[in-house]
């Protein structure tokens, strides 16, 4: 049996009017609510209240209950999440990060995200139990 361990949870508060243009191309930009307006326009904004975990391949990112397995994590993504609630999800299942700010996942990018949806990051792989933080 696998056990889920939630390491991040934040509620989507607003979806920028042009976020859909990027999502149609398989890319979702997430930011905490304090993102400046130019960025907010292209982003899914959420009530970021801090992140203290480790972002790594094998984790699951869930948006509105739809789960996506993380395949690669850029070197800047964790710091961006911690400081700004910011990361860029790329739905291409790549095994090597394309850009330092990107988090790659398996699956198709949702066509839309609704305010009020939960953004969650959890681990469910038993092989990692006993790792850092356990």
């Amino acid at each position: 049996m696998t056990e889920r361990r939630l390491i991040y949870r934040s509620r989507v508060s607003r979806v920028g009017e042009r976020a859909g243009e990027l999502m149609a191309g398989g890319l979702m930009v997430l930011f905490g609510e304090q993102a400046p307006e130019a960025l907010a326009e292209f982003s899914v904004l959420h009530e970021h209240t801090g992140f203290a975990g480790v972002l790594r391949p094998g984790l699951v990112v869930a948006i509105g209950g739809e789960a996506y397995r993380v395949t690669a994590v850029g070197e800047r993504a964790e710091q961006n999440l911690r400081l700004l609630g910011h990361f860029v999800l790329k739905f291409d299942g790549a095994g090597v990060p394309e850009l330092p700010g990107h988090v790659h996942v398996h699956g198709d990018c949702p066509r839309a995200v609704n305010p009020g949806s939960w953004l969650e990051i959890y681990e469910d792989d038993p092989g990692q139990v006993g790792g850092p933080g356990a």
């Binding site: 326009e41 961006n80 860029v88």
Partner: peptide
Amino acid sequence: DCGGTARVGVYPMK
């Protein structure tokens, strides 16, 4: 200071 898509692209677009 981000090698991502958003900040790198949005401001030049504007």
